[in-house]
């Protein structure tokens, strides 16, 4: 009925109100890149002994000789026409690079989120049902461990254990074993593409490549999810309506899963959005350790060589994804909590 309409209205309003923020991000990154030390023209000149004339030529080619406000206007015009510039490192348009690499990052992040949720929710619930029990302390320990061990350390440990010692995992070099057949690109997500093409051999190869990096990232975000689940469950379990459920003889399972958990999930949904955005940006270390061809490692490489266009493109992409994730969370929240949509 009007629920869908009201959610759509909310989402629309939220999307509109994020336009100024996106614009701000564009301007800010643009200026930041100009302020950073290093002259890209020098960096991209043919060699250390390139002449002043050559550097000047490159500078003009890149539009760096114009005053900064004019550069900004040109940049905005480019963005409006869908042109994010060309990467000096790869020689490709930034848009192409990002389109090629984004699915890799998304596939990794989604899988990691799935791992994290499927571990954090049960752990959080168990901990909340028996507060201060052995399980509760165990979960707390695991969470602390996940937070305080940096991802590159846990990633390396996992590689050491599962690849080097046990030999179960494939070598940590990218998304697909060199010997496996590359499925035709449809969505860019290898798991989906392989499944579509029916190449299960490739699917298994890609999945086994994915497990370790995804587990590394999942471990990192386990803590916020599990702790939030625990706190929300603890609060909900003492609420009046759970008592009602108990008083009227609902089964324990129904009380915990339908009455308590669904209410406790509301704050977890919010945290999930934050965690997802963080993971997408912060997984640069994981991508580096596992030679994962994602957008974060791409942006890092560009940053180290003062390659303006990819960094600006990356930041823009992240801001855009952040807005998108928030919208999704909003819609999910509207569906999960009928009280939100009437306001």
């Amino acid at each position: 009925m009007s629920l869908a309409a009201s959610i759509a209205r909310r989402a629309g309003r939220r999307a509109l109100s994020s336009v100024p923020a996106l614009f701000g991000v564009i301007v800010f990154t643009f200026l930041l890149m100009r302020v950073l030390p290093g002259d890209p023209a020098v960096f991209f000149a043919s060699g250390p002994n390139a002449g002043q004339a050559e550097i000047q030529m490159i500078r003009e080619q890149m539009g760096l000789d114009k005053p900064i406000p004019q550069q900004l206007l040109l940049y905005l015009k480019d963005i409006a026409t869908g042109n994010l510039g060309r990467s000096m490192n790869t020689g490709q348009p930034v848009v192409t690079d990002l389109i090629n690499r984004l699915p890799a990052s998304l596939e990794l992040t989604f899988t990691a989120l799935l791992f994290a949720l499927s571990l954090a929710l049960p752990l959080g619930i168990l901990a909340a049902l028996r507060p201060n029990s052995l399980i509760d302390h165990g979960v707390r320990f695991l969470c602390s461990l996940g937070v305080c061990v940096p991802t590159f350390v846990s990633g390396l440990l996992l590689i050491y254990a599962f690849y080097y010692i046990l030999g179960i995992a494939p070598d940590p070099t990218g998304r697909l074993d060199v010997f496996a057949a590359q499925p035709p690109v449809v969505s860019g997500f290898i798991l989906i593409d392989a499944a579509l093409a029916g190449e299960w051999e490739s699917w298994r190869a890609a999945a086994s490549q994915l497990v370790l990096p995804a587990a590394t990232m999942a471990l990192f975000v386990l803590a916020p999810l599990a702790r939030m689940t625990r706190a929300a469950m603890l609060a909900v379990m003492t609420s009046d309506f759970v008592r009602t459920g108990e008083a009227l003889g609902l089964s324990r399972r129904r009380v915990v899963l339908v009455y308590a958990l669904r209410n406790a999930l509301l704050p977890v949904i919010t945290i999930m959005g934050i965690v997802f955005s963080t993971m997408l940006g912060a997984n640069v270390l994981v991508e580096k350790v596992f030679s994962w061809p994602g957008v974060a490692s791409y942006a890092l490489d560009a940053l180290l060589t003062s390659d303006y266009a990819p960094v600006q493109g990356f930041v823009l992409l992240m801001a855009f994804i952040f807005v998108l994730v928030n919208l999704t969370i909003d819609v999910l929240y509207g569906l999960a909590d009928p009280r939100v949509s009437i306001e």
Binding site: F241, A247, L248, G249, V258, N263, P338
Partner: peptide
């Protein structure tokens, strides 16, 4: 509980599940 003996509470709005 519920079948042979049941209970109603003070503050009825809080006693009902808000999202069901």
């Amino acid at each position: 509980r519920g079948a042979a003996m049941s209970m109603i509470f003070q503050n009825p709005r809080a006693a009902l599940n808000p999202i069901r």
